[in-house]
Simulated scan of single mutants.
Amino acid sequence: MRHSVNRPPTPDARDDQEKDPTFQEIVNIKLIESGEKERLMELLRERLIECGWKDEMKALCRAFIKKKGRNNVTVDDLIHLITPKGRASVPDYIKAELLQRIQTFLVSAAL
């Protein structure tokens, strides 16, 4: 198919379908618009501090920096170290509480 130099090609029908937001995107938009996302983030911060998760991650970073040397560690190094361990060590009760809050929001928002 040849395209005109002066106008872009006509979009295919499947291109229009790809632009429709997914359910996850719709939920994220609703969470942001309502301010619930920020409330959930604050709740998560509080719970992670309360259970000692934040201190545990801080200690892990400090130990890694001490081992490698302060000048030999980048932020990317710390992110690669912390991300899998941090996600795996979030207590299940915190995940369950957040999931329950999201489910309650979805019911109240009639999504």
Rank of each mutant, 00 (worst) to 15 (best):
V73Y: 09
L44R: 00
D77E: 01
I29L: 08
V27S: 08
C51D: 05
T104F: 13
I29V: 14
R47G: 06
P84I: 03
V5K: 00
C51S: 10
A13Q: 10
A110I: 14
T22N: 13
D76G: 03
E36F: 12
E33T: 06
R70L: 08
N28G: 09
D92P: 05
M1I: 06
A88Q: 13
L98I: 11
F105K: 07
L31E: 06
R2F: 10
T104H: 12
T83K: 12
K67D: 01
P84K: 07
V27G: 07
G35S: 12
E36V: 15
N6T: 05
A63I: 03
N71L: 01
I29D: 12
S4E: 08
Q103K: 15
L40F: 04
R62P: 02
E46A: 13
K95N: 05
I102C: 13
A13S: 13
G35C: 14
A63E: 11
M1N: 05
N6A: 09
I79F: 08
T10P: 04
V90F: 06
I32R: 08
A110V: 13
K19F: 02
V107W: 14
S4P: 01
I26C: 01
I102Q: 07
E33D: 10
R2G: 08
R87D: 00
R87K: 02
K95A: 09
Q24I: 14
D77R: 03
K30D: 11
S34R: 13
S108D: 15
E97M: 13
R87F: 03
T22W: 10
P91L: 03
K30P: 12
E38I: 14
S34E: 12
A13C: 12
I26K: 11
G86Q: 03
P11Q: 03
L111E: 11
N6W: 11
I29Y: 05
E18A: 14
K66D: 12
D92I: 13
S108N: 15
R7L: 14
V75R: 05
D76W: 06
